[in-house]
């Protein structure tokens, strides 16, 4: 199999995730889109690992790390969302513009 379809698919996933970040209004949806991006990166790593025939399986190891970190990040992210919601009673990302000029 050629590597290229996988890579293009990963790139497409990445850009869909970017689109989602830019477009979605709900904070949780944005986090969802971030997961898509991370997933695209995971595909890339595994494909390269298969392409290189790595004896050390570095691609897969790294993928495991990324998954772990993604999980931790989601946990913290949702905790923050929770606090935001407690304070503002809304999850609309447009409402959180206190850092504006």
């Amino acid at each position: 199999m050629s590597v290229q379809p996988f890579l293009i698919a990963a790139a497409g996933l990445f850009s869909i995730g970017i689109y989602g970040i830019l477009v979605r209004r709900n904070v949780v949806m944005v986090l969802l889109s971030i997961e898509l991006i991370l997933n695209a990166v995971n595909i890339n790593f595994v494909v390269f690992n298969a392409m290189l025939g790595d004896a050390l399986l570095q691609g897969q190891i790294f993928t495991i790390f990324i998954i772990t970190i993604a999980a931790a990040e989601v946990g913290i992210g949702l905790a923050i969302v929770l606090m935001l919601f407690r304070n503002r009673k809304t999850a609309n990302i447009d409402e959180f513009d206190l850092l504006k000029w």
Binding site: M1, S2, V3, Q4, L7, I8, G53
Partner: peptide, 11 residues
């Protein structure tokens, strides 16, 4: 990606 990688996957 297309420019750089043109290999085959080792199954």
């Amino acid at each position: 990606m297309l420019d750089t990688f043109d290999s085959q996957i080792i199954i």
